[in-house]
């Protein structure tokens, strides 16, 4: 997996690159918008991490230019804390996901991972299968070891997302954004309560827990 970081803050880029390399990614860094765009145009990247504010060319222009040229490489857009409207601007420019700085590294990691695998699961499937767990997307049923599990609509959506990202860490913010489709910062553990409810349904009475809590990051569905 090749990741290009386009970010003018060298320290932040260094820390990010270090963490991603540790996780087994192949990482390159461009220190400004122009260099980043040139590097991105060479192609062959799996994910681009693009900062909003940069010298020479800002992140929005970089993403817009790439999209105009037909480059569909997934982009994770970064912007400074408190810029309330940046998310809308970034997504409008063609970014696929958005993260506010300063971010927790597991959050960045989880999003990069989700973006990098997105292409592989592009095919339209009618069933999802993760280990013993099977989900039928047509008649909306879930079975584990052949036993039907009764889920509420939201629990079904939540599990579907976890299954599509099986083996990856998924953060609480990601779940709120992708399953509930809200972008705000809950002060309490609302997501945890939903996850534990789901966990009690899919793991209770089985010998092995599939839905794992990842410390400092969020959750992971293991096969």
């Amino acid at each position: 997996m090749r990741i290009l970081i386009i970010e003018d803050d060298l320290e932040a880029a260094g820390a990010m690159a270090h963490g991603l390399k540790e996780a087994g990614y192949d990482v390159a860094h461009a220190p400004d918008g122009e260099a980043g765009l040139a590097e991105a145009q060479k192609g062959g990247w799996d994910v681009l991490v693009v900062d909003r504010m940069m010298p020479k060319m800002d992140g929005v222009t970089v993403v817009e230019t790439l999209r105009r040229e037909g480059d569909q490489t997934p982009v994770l857009f970064l912007s400074a804390l408190g810029e309330v409207n940046d998310r809308v601007v970034g997504l409008k420019a063609g970014a696929d996901d958005y993260l506010v700085k300063p971010y927790a590294f597991p959050e960045l990691m989880a999003r990069v991972e989700a973006l990098s695998r997105r292409r592989e699961t592009g095919a339209v499937a009618t069933t999802l299968k993760v280990g013993e767990l099977e989900m039928n997307l047509i008649n909306r049923t879930v079975h584990r070891q052949g036993k039907e599990i009764d889920l509420q609509p939201r629990e079904f959506q939540l599990l579907e997302f976890m299954m599509r990202h099986a083996g990856q860490s998924v953060t609480r913010t990601m779940l709120l954004e992708k399953v509930w489709e809200y972008h705000f910062d809950p002060q309490t553990n609302v997501i945890d309560v939903h996850i534990s409810r789901l966990r009690s349904k899919i793991d209770k009475g089985f010998d092995r827990a599939m839905l794992q809590t990842v410390r400092g990051a969020g959750y992971r569905l293991d096969p």
Binding site: V84, F184, T188, V190
Partner: peptide
């Protein structure tokens, strides 16, 4: 929508707390 969601979430958070 996001700010209003945040506002409602804050009110509910407080109530539960």
């Amino acid at each position: 929508r996001e700010f209003l969601a945040q506002a409602l979430a804050n009110i509910l958070d407080n109530a539960i707390k």
